[in-house]
Design a protein around this nucleic acid. Structure first.
Length: 131
DNA sequence: ATATTGACTCCCA
DNA sequence: ATGGGAGCCAATA
C-alpha cells in the first residue's frame, strides 16, 4: 500500500467517527488492518490538507490523552475546543494535559465501512459502544 | 545507506 | 496507580 492510500484509508475511517465521540490512533490502525501503524495514523493527520472534512480532533491516544506536540503549538488547545464544541467533556491536568474519557466518549467499533480488517494480528471484539 | 524521530502502545518494575 | 523501557514502521535528516 502506498502512503497516499494509507492516508486516504485513515481519513476514510476518521471521517466515520460520530460527532461527540473519540477514538484512538491504535484503533484506527487496527481497523485498517495494520495494528502496528498507530503512529502513522497521526503521521497521516499531519499530512492532512487544510479544508478537508476529516475530524482529526476526534483522534486521541489510547489513554484518551491528547498529545501536546510541542509547547509552542496550539494544536492540542484547538483540539480541546473543537471537542468541547461537539459536546465532549475534556479534562485538563495540572500541566495542561488534555484528557478525554474513553469510557464515556470512546468509539471503538469492530469494523467500519470501507475498512480492511484482517491482517495478521486480529482479535475481534464487540462494539464497546455503551451509549 | 545508516541513524534518529515521531500527533503511539504495551509490558514490567 | 504511576513510571520507565522496549517494540514498531515509515518518514526525514
Amino acid at each position: 500500500m502506498d502512503s497516499a492510500e494509507f492516508h486516504a484509508l485513515a481519513y476514510n475511517i476518521i471521517r466515520q467517527i460520530p460527532v461527540g465521540r473519540v477514538t484512538s490512533y491504535g484503533h484506527i490502525a487496527r481497523l485498517m488492518g495494520m495494528p502496528r501503524h498507530s503512529r502513522h495514523v497521526g503521521q497521516a493527520l499531519k499530512f492532512l490538507p487544510a479544508g478537508s472534512n476529516v475530524p482529526w480532533q476526534r483522534v486521541v491516544s489510547s489513554s484518551g490523552a491528547i498529545s501536546s506536540r510541542g509547547p509552542g503549538t496550539d494544536g492540542a488547545q484547538r483540539q480541546r475546543e473543537a471537542l468541547e464544541a461537539e459536546g465532549v467533556d475534556v479534562a485538563v491536568g495540572r500541566t495542561g494535559e488534555l484528557l478525554v474519557s474513553l469510557a464515556q466518549y470512546g468509539w471503538f467499533p469492530a469494523s467500519v465501512d470501507g475498512a480492511a480488517v484482517g491482517d495478521g494480528d486480529e482479535d475481534e471484539g464487540e462494539d464497546a459502544d455503551g451509549q
